[in-house]
Structure formats: C-alpha cells, structure tokens
Design a protein around this nucleic acid. Structure first.
Lengths: 190, 190
DNA sequence: ATCAGAATGTGATCTACATCACGTAACCAA
DNA sequence: TTGGTTACGTGATGTAGATCACATTCTGAT
C-alpha cells in the first residue's frame, strides 16, 4: 500500500477528514527512506519530528551508562515513534531511534502537528486517541513488568506481536524485556 | 481553593475556554466526597467515569493473585485517575481506586467527556495535552524500572513527590516501587 | 485508657536473574 | 572461499531482592 493511503486509512478509523483536507494535511508529512541499521534520531539530537512508519521496523531505545540498551518500543507500519519527552519539552534527545530493517517513514514536525491540530478539530481528536492508546499500552506494560517474570513477559510479547519472533534478533527482544540475552536464551530450554 | 476554580485554573494553563463556556463544561462534573479507605472504583465494576482530584490523595492499584498489590498511580489534587483501559475498551475494571486520605473528586463520565471534546475544540486540545503528559511520565517510569535498582527508584520518587513521604504509609510506597515492604524498609539502614 | 489490628523493623534463608567466560553457528563483505 | 563480526547457547558463580518468621511500635475505635 502507498504510504499516503496507509496514513489516510489509519486516521480514517478514528477521525473523518475530507479528501481535499487530507491532501493538505498529508503535504506536511515528509517521506523518508532508511537502510537497515541507520539512525533516525540519536541521543543528544534536537528533536523536531515524530515518525509514522509505513514500512519496515524501527526501535526506540535508551542506552544507560554507554553499556546497556533498553528498548522502549518496536515500531512497525502504522506505528508512531519519536522521543516524545524531548519533543514535548524541547530538550535534547535521550531516546534514540534506528532501523532494525530497511524502513520508510513519514516525518511530521511538532510545529506542523500543532498547526494541523488547531486547523482540524478532527485531527486533534485523532491525536488524542492515539496518545491515549499509547498511554494505556504503557501502563499495561508497566504492570506486566511489576507482576510477571521474564518468561511470562516474553510469552506476552510474542502473543501480542508474533512477527517479532522472526523479524527481530533475540538480544533486541531481551533489551525490550529488560533482561539479559543469556537469560532470554535459557528460557527456551526450560 | 474551590474545586471549580482548581479545575478552571488547571485547564486554563493549556486551553482557553470562555468563562460562560466553562460554567457549562463544569456542569458536567459531579463533585463527590470520600472518607479515608473508601473505594471509588473496584475491580470488576463497570467503569463510566474518570476522576479529577480536588483534595486528598488516592491510589490506583492492581491486585494480582489476590495477594500482591501494585500501585499504578498516586493521585493528588489536579491529578486525574481512573481505569483508562477499562473506560476506553468498555470492559470491567481490572484497576481499583481508593482513598489514602479523605478526598474530594470531580467525576466526569466518558460520554460527557467525549461530548464536551466535540463541542469545544480547546477542551479536546486540553485532553490531548493531559494524556500526552501521562504517556511521557509512564514511559519515564518504565525506563526507570528497567534501568534503576530499588534505592534509586525510591529516591527518584521522593525527589519528585516529597509530600508522599509523610502522607503515604511505607508499604504503599513499596507497592508503587514494585518491591517488598521489607526491602524498602532495609534501604534506610543501608 | 485500653486493646486489636495495622505499620514497621530486622534476621535467616531462598531464588530469579545478572555477570563472566567460553564455544559454536550464522551472516556479510572483500 | 575466507576471515571477521554478530548472534546465539550454555556452564559456573555472584547478588539484589523475595519470602518467612517474629518483635516492636503506632493508631484508631470503644
């Protein structure tokens, strides 16, 4: 599917935007292509944009004392990602985003998002819905973290996103689960 | 401060609502009073409302196998709380909310919130902002969970909300940190 | 004022997971 | 094809925090 059509259908599930209005809205999104391994957003960068994934798979991650990586989010088509804290607070990025596979995204600047949200009530509605969904998912993940051991969290992740099993190397799954790659590996044999 | 004024100033920081419009908006909020220990929302309930705290302190929590409690959120004045997953998905509550101290809240039904959001673009803007803030805080807490040990998480919590130290019993702080009360207690001596 | 239940402290022991160490297999790039 | 890097598996050992057990202090209802 075309990137434009993908975005349109994604938004249309929640908000109704007239065809000609959507053309205008879409003109604010900048299509970008990246190769596997390429960085989209790096720690310390000024953050201006958020990204709507149209193909491929990204990861948004944090690296602590330059040693350990924690993955906040995998981003697949129709998912949005960025360092929202940095975007919102206008601070340098602490979260990085890069490509697990070749990927294409639509880039929307924060400025344009706010402009469009004020121009189109329905778009503001859409973004409220989207953030709400992210918030609920994040709460759920937090609870899972407190309540479940690694094995259960792993099973939960795979049942939610079965594609990840083949798409994403195991050590990245470990980094998402907040566990060492060794421990994750040992789960298979237990 | 009056509950009404508290809400008005809280919203005014983000959205501009005309005085007479705010009166109309406010008429949809139902003031409620609760005693310390009283339940506002219990697991299994149908969830219709979200709550804006105007005085006192609540907790939103999850109980797993009828043994262990995890606190998702403390809610103090100007904070909003509910079981948002249940509210959004129209499913029975899995999160409960009750009062750590005597408390007063303004109750807003989901239906009224959606109605008001569609009537007032600025209010939709406000709720987008609010959810966005919650999402960012939740992401941050998740990272802290993965990256920090109990001691650091405890210090982080107290530096963010010093009032909690005197207001909230230690075993509830432990339940927020996702740690046993014994371990939390031992932090003081180390 | 008194007493029961809740909150807190603290020792002894257990356990899930981390860390370190090493070996093997898979994947590219020249 | 080859050599180097990255991914993955697995043993040995260390450790943060859980669990159990019990003592002490605080608190709120009668």
């Amino acid at each position: 599917m075309e990137a434009k059509e993908l975005l349109q259908q994604h938004i249309a599930k929640i908000a109704s935007i007239k065809e000609e209005d959507f053309d205008y809205v879409f003109s604010h999104f900048k299509p970008m292509s990246f190769k596997k391994g390429q960085a989209i957003l790096s720690e310390g960068d000024k953050v201006d944009c958020e990204y709507f994934v149209t193909s491929g798979c990204l990861k948004a991650f944090f690296i602590n004392d330059e040693i350990k990586m924690y993955i906040l989010q995998f981003a697949m088509p129709t998912w949005w990602t960025s360092d929202y804290a940095a975007l919102y607070n206008q601070t340098p990025a602490t979260i990085s985003v890069d490509c697990i596979t070749d990927a294409e995204v639509l880039c929307l600047s924060s400025e344009d998002r706010e402009k469009l949200c004020s121009e189109f009530h329905q778009l503001e509605h859409f973004f409220r819905w989207r953030t709400n969904r992210g918030y609920i998912a994040s709460q759920k993940r937090l609870l899972s973290f407190m309540n479940n051991n690694v094995k259960k969290r792993y099973e939960e992740l795979l049942s939610l996103y079965p594609q990840l099993y083949n798409l994403v190397p195991k050590h990245l799954i470990a980094a998402y689960l907040g566990v060492s790659r060794e421990t994750l590996s040992r789960l298979h044999s237990s």
